[in-house]
Write a protein that binds this DNA or RNA. Structure first.
Lengths: 192, 192
DNA sequence: CCTACCGATCGGTAGG
DNA sequence: CCTACCGATCGGTAGG
């Protein structure tokens, strides 16, 4: 029973990722599952519920991870490397859902839209805190934190557009490569 | 006459940027212009024509700029800085169209979809060539060019998500900040 | 899980 | 530029 619901969610994730939320119909989803559209409504109550169920658990997972990093590690650079690694790993394990997360959140209706924005702000603020830690340690340049975090997150989020599980790059290696470029980029040059 | 067509295009750009191509209807567009949906068809022939007319001229402009950079400047770092600056400036001057360019290209149908991908590949390859120039000059680290270009373009493209024409950062300053972070990140450390 | 259906809306055309 | 309309498809419900 519950697994049928999960099947609907993963089918929806794939379809939304590919065609976008408004470009995917309940009939598209049901056709891929080999049932009639009306049958989906015994397991879910609306199309938007699908969107919510794809986006929010993923957001909670990302937030939980980030809180753990801020609790466990102390050095700013180490924190940043682990946070990026965690982010990329979650993304690669949930590529379809992650793409929906990035591209279709705007189709949430209130109050869920505001809830999403609050979640996203908390996540970005967690990263800014890490950057601040590195600046306080005099390891990172004194840069615009907001700007650094947007640049950083855009790079890691873009991985969802091109990551290939069968390609040569593992999620860990991808995270390492991005970290190498960006952390060198924001590090104090006197540290070389 | 021709200006009416441009009005339709700029109204569509704004709407597509906001709601996505499948989430925007011809009636949404016509309502914002204060006419009936049927009236739009004296100026355009289909909804997808709008998408094509928003995406392709912008792509051509980006490509033309990049070719000029590769012709005029010689030093890899200089080339990269100017290419990033040009890209951000075009983006900021055409925010709505640029967002459509990034998010709605997938709704193009053949043969335009293939044409778009070819255009995008040419653009990315132009950037890879610049990175290669810097490596040949022994200024940039010997990194995975594909990876570097994707990281770089993701950061500049993301600017469309947050740029505010009335905010404190000018397009030029934004380009400079991104260049500073990313170019330091890929530069040979022996050059400090 | 299905059949049968609802009202609303879609992209687009005819004809003026 | 409009009215009037087309067939197709939308999200969703009733009832079994």
């Amino acid at each position: 029973m519950e697994s049928r619901r999960h099947q609907i969610l993963s089918t929806s994730s794939k379809l939304f990722a590919e065609k976008g939320f408004p470009g995917s119909s309940m009939r598209n989803i049901s056709a891929q599952m080999g049932v009639e559209a009306a049958s989906l409504y015994s397991h879910i109550s609306s199309k938007e519920e699908l969107l919510q169920e794809i986006i929010f658990p993923l957001g909670e997972e990302l937030l939980k991870q980030l809180d753990e990093v801020n609790d466990i590690y102390f050095n700013g650079e180490e924190k940043l490397r682990v946070a990026i690694k965690n982010h990329v790993e979650v993304l690669c394990r949930n590529m379809d859902a992650f793409q929906v997360f990035i591209q279709d959140w705007k189709y949430l209706t209130e109050p869920h839209l505001s809830q999403f924005k609050k979640m996203r702000d908390r996540y970005e603020s967690g990263f800014r805190q890490i950057i601040q830690t590195g600046m306080d340690e005099n390891i990172f340049e004194n840069l615009d934190k907001k700007f650094v975090v947007l640049t950083l997150l855009s790079s890691v989020n873009w991985v969802a557009q091109w990551y290939n599980p069968e390609g040569p790059l593992t999620p860990e290696k991808i995270a390492e490569n991005i970290s190498d470029i960006l952390i060198y980029g924001i590090k104090k040059k006197s540290h070389f």
